[in-house]
Design a protein around this nucleic acid. Structure first.
Length: 898
RNA sequence: GGGCGAUUAGCUCAGCUGGUUUAGAGCGCUACCCUUACAAGGUAGAUGUCGUAGGUUCGACUCCUACAUCGCCCACCA
């Protein structure tokens, strides 16, 4: 086995292994299987995306679950796919076109879409390839794309059903509008960010009256953050209870610059404490004002083009950008002495989640889904614990959003996406622009559904025009758990794999996706889409900022894979993911996994170098096991149990820590070393191999490549179901290897060895010198224990072991030390420095005294004795005895020294 | 304005239902080691009033309350 390198080199290994797995169809799920199913659905990455650490974390977690369950014998399906990301993709392609000086309108809708499809064909699967390099064991043959025919059909079907159920409408509302992407956004797509803006105070002259009561002015001062919208003001509102303005009843004010007369309206919703207590009402440009406008029957004036420039309603300002207009208006107001002041004002401003442009609240005609009735059963499902969030704190976040859910604006004024499956009859409806047709429930003259048969249901003619808009990308995503399995057909796959078992995703996606999937699953598939929702943390850089390309603080997972391998990446990232806390990463963190992979590699190399080429057949004979054998086998059982339990509870880092500790600090540090001295080489080999096998299996979900690679180097017989670790069985604890006493004794042994080593280091004794150690064993079992294990102590402590005579005091030139109950003298072979030894013992005594007095106090406490459970009291008593003994020994020793 | 999370060794973080942890890990640091699996390693070691102040309890890093600091999410105060 000399050819195996001492450095684990993932580069040579990972790709080849992945290819073999794929070739062997290990990722494939079989709906006809009789095995119990376990399914997960991938949060479909968007086709414009490239792999980032968030994906790496997300996919590693899912891959761990899937691989683990697969090994446990489940028929696993990990359903992969990508998302067409309407706005993002369209932006990317438009940017490409602009390099050639082209705009989408130059091409026209069809040509443009052809370009997008071309782009998708070329780059759309980049992310898939990258996910493969992580080791993701998705069933790639089933890869779906949100604009596949099957999924598109599901979208149309769902649209139709919602429409027919009266859960959809199209009408004029204030929506979030991105003036750069030129489309409406849903509330969730407008990201609110705290911005330090300005609050401008502007005078509106009162018409028909010279002075206001108290202010001694003929002006009403209003405050606004967006002065440019004043061009569209139609009223001024004040609170009816606000005494300052009661005199305005029935009066009008003059809108400066525009010189339009505005009504003064009185409304309870106006907060007298904000600004001046007077609110300019601009129904076409503000959601609150829009409501006010409706309530008071006001006119809507729209002063903006879709791109944020002022339109002809804005008179002199026509053509100006909204922000330019803001400044100009302020200047003009100043000139007219109508400007009072500007105050700094921090408020949350919506930004487009795709291009980060400031969103403009804009009045337009859009399609909406009535979410409130749909949310009800989805709320119940979570309240009834049919769906559980991990960690549970996200339950509240979910419920809070669901209980305050608002209509979902689903139409987008772009071309890339699912076109709204609605046709308007030109004859019946007589419209000029299909976008402007208002649709309420069950409207006549429109056809909703599949485009194959679109006749006007009223007049039967085919003079129909399709709605030009497309649907929100999330309108296909929310169907993902069942649309990918063939819905609306009643497929075998749906029957087998729906509902899925768990959804693993990021917190920022709860509203966009998780909540809506639950709604859609219950509504259309009549069943919850998943049972558990594991919300992992957000990946941040070392300073705590979210990793994002625009900030340039990203650590590219592909770079990390190149450097340390996918296994190291996976193991490192999992080890810092505790209870879904945010994950803070820096390059150095990946050394953790790399070092561990290397350790595993070398330990395996050692075991395999010394192992026979063919597997040893006979079972491990428990009668012949020595201390270390029992210990490692028992510990292995513990590791199996803890790791499995941790995974069941989604405590991924607990599982990885258990394995790390078992492998490094138990198997490598101690067992491997002990096995080198074994008198029964065959048995040792068997145990080494047996434990290594289980180690590899336990580790496989976390580090799939290296474990598979080592697995194939193991002595094996022909080819069987254990040929690949990926398809081998997940370990279970073996009761015949349980022996508590051996574990205790081994622990004592470790303490003894460590104590002697400690003495050697403290006294700076050459590591080659053999130290004489005399054990002052108090009783026969202890004596027997020492005698039976002499050779281990001698070898690992580099010592000569003797049993001291019963009443022997400290020999000359020796120091006394304790390993638990066992007292021993270590002969230094040189004059001991008394002051050094006194100081050493003194320090230990002080430590112990503090602790012992704590226990003494506790045991003297009557209430403790009365109220504490029996076993706890007993434990404390044992502790007291043990430490009192130690303390006494130390003190005696100190006395003897003086 | 509402909600959530964090605060433990120099750094990054574990510590689940209070007592088996005399507060742990990794990195870093100190000393000694190229001991034939591994220097991406080994052995030994140092470092903590567990954010502050109260409370509950026989017992609190763990539960409760308040406060402080940092971070996140949600919200139509113009």
């Amino acid at each position: 086995m000399k050819e195996i390198s001492t450095r684990y080199n993932p580069k040579e290994i990972e790709e080849a292994i992945y290819t073999s797995w794929e070739k062997n169809k290990f990722f494939s799920a079989h709906e006809e299987s009789s095995k119990k199913s376990y399914s997960i659905v991938i949060p479909p990455p968007n086709i414009t995306g490239i792999l980032h650490m968030g994906h790496a974390l997300n996919n590693t977690l899912q891959d761990i679950l899937v691989r683990w369950k697969r090994m446990q014998g489940f028929e696993t399906l990990w359903m992969p796919g990508t998302d067409h990301a309407g706005i993002a993709t369209q932006n990317v392609v438009e940017r490409e076109l602009s390099k050639q000086g082209l705009k989408r309108d130059d091409l026209g809708r069809e040509e443009f879409l052809k370009k997008v499809w071309q782009w998708k064909d070329e780059y759309g699967s980049t992310i898939i390839k990258q996910l493969k390099s992580l080791g993701s064991s998705c069933d790639w043959d089933r890869t779906r794309f949100t604009m596949d025919e099957g999924l598109s059909r599901a979208v149309r079907e769902v649209f139709k059903r919602l429409y027919e159920d009266g859960l959809m409408y199209k009408g004029d509302y204030i929506i979030n509008w991105c003036p750069r992407c030129l489309t409406a956004l849903s509330d969730e797509e407008a990201e609110h960010r705290e911005v330090e803006g300005m609050l401008y105070y502007i005078k509106y002259p009162v018409s028909g009256r010279r002075k206001l009561e108290k202010e001694n002015e003929d002006y009403l001062v209003i405050a606004t953050t967006r002065p440019e919208t004043m061009l569209a003001d139609v009223a001024v509102a004040v609170n009816p209870k606000d005494a300052r303005y009661s005199a305005l009843s029935g009066k009008k004010v003059v809108l400066p610059i525009v010189n339009r007369e505005l009504k003064v309206i009185f409304d309870e919703d106006v907060d007298p404490k904000f600004g001046t207590g007077a609110l300019k009402v601009t129904p076409a440009h503000d959601p609150v004002d829009f409501e006010l406008g409706k309530k008071h029957g006001l006119e809507n004036i729209n002063v903006m083009h879709s791109d944020g420039r002022i339109n002809s309603e804005g008179a002199d300002y026509e053509g100006m950008d909204r922000f330019e207009c803001r400044q100009t208006i302020i200047e003009d107001l100043k000139q007219r002495k109508l400007f009072v002041k500007a105050e700094k004002h921090v408020h949350a401003v919506g930004h487009c989640y795709r291009c980060h442009t400031v969103v403009e609240p804009r009045l337009s005609k859009q399609w909406f889904v009535k979410m409130a009735p749909l949310a009800k059963p989805a709320i119940k499902a979570v309240k009834d614990k049919k769906i559980k969030f991990y960690p549970p704190r996200w339950t509240k976040v979910y419920l809070n959003w669901m209980e305050n859910i608002r209509p979902w604006c689903i139409s987008r004024q772009i071309w890339w996406g699912h076109r709204i499956p609605v046709w308007y009859c030109k004859d019946c409806l007589k419209f000029e622009n299909a976008r402007e047709v208002e649709v309420s429930a069950k409207q006549k003259g429109i056809f909703v559904g599949d485009e194959k048969d679109m006749k006007c249901p009223v007049c039967g003619k085919r003079n129909m025009e399709q709605d030009p808009d497309v649907l929100d990308t999330w309108f296909s995503s929310w169907l993902w758990p069942f649309s990918t399995l063939g819905w609306p057909e009643k497929t075998l796959a749906l029957k087998k794999f729906y509902p899925t078992d768990v959804l693993v995703t990021a917190p920022e996606i709860i509203f966009f996706w998780v909540a809506r999937m639950i709604i859609a699953g219950i509504k259309f598939q009549k069943e919850i889409p998943f049972k558990d929702v594991y919300i992992h943390g957000t990946v941040r850089d070392a300073s705590g900022t979210k990793m994002s390309k625009s900030l340039g603080n990203v650590i590219d997972p592909l770079d990390v894979i190149k450097e340390v391998g996918s296994d190291a990446l996976r193991f490192s990232i999992i080890s810092v993911t505790s209870q879904a806390q945010d994950v803070f990463l820096s390059k150095e963190k990946f050394d953790f996994g790399r070092n561990f992979a290397n350790k595993l590699w070398n330990a395996s190399r050692y075991v395999l170098m010394n192992a026979s080429q063919t597997p040893l057949k006979d079972e491990i004979n428990t009668e012949k096991l020595n201390l270390a054998d029992w210990w490692i086998l028992s510990s292995m059982n513990d590791a199996v149990r803890s790791a499995t339990k941790a995974l069941e509870k989604f405590r991924f880092n607990d599982a990885s820590n258990v394995l790390y500790d078992f492998i490094w600090h138990k198997y490598c540090d101690w067992y491997l070393e002990f096995s080198k001295l074994s008198e029964n080489k065959k048995l040792s080999e068997k145990i080494l191999i047996e434990v290594l096998k289980n180690i590899l299996k336990l580790l496989h979900p976390f580090m799939p490549f290296i474990t598979e690679e080592i697995w194939h180097k193991m002595p094996r017989e022909g080819q069987g179901e254990n040929e690949w670790i990926m398809t081998s069985a997940w370990p279970e604890p073996d009761k015949k290897f349980e022996k508590k006493i051996a574990v205790d004794q081994m622990e004592r042994m470790i303490k003894i060895i460590t104590a002697v080593r400690n003495v050697r280091a403290f006294w700076r004794i050459n590591h080659t010198a053999i130290l004489e150690v005399r054990f002052a064993a108090k009783n026969d079992p202890d004596k027997r224990f020492i005698m039976e294990n002499t050779r281990y102590i001698e070898e690992f402590a580099k010592a000569k072991v003797k049993i001291a005579k019963t009443k022997e005091t400290r020999p000359a030139q020796s120091v006394e030390c304790l390993a638990g109950r066992v007292k021993m003298y270590v002969l230094l072979g040189k004059e001991i420095d008394l002051s050094r030894e006194t100081a050493r013992i003194d320090k230990k005594i002080k430590e112990l005294e503090r602790y012992v007095s704590g226990i003494r106090g506790k045991l003297a406490n009557k209430r403790f004795l009365d109220k504490a459970p029996e076993d706890i009291i007993q434990k404390e008593k044992n502790k007291q005895e043990k430490f009192a003994h130690e303390l006494k020994t130390l003190k005696d020793n100190l006395k003897a020294l003086k």
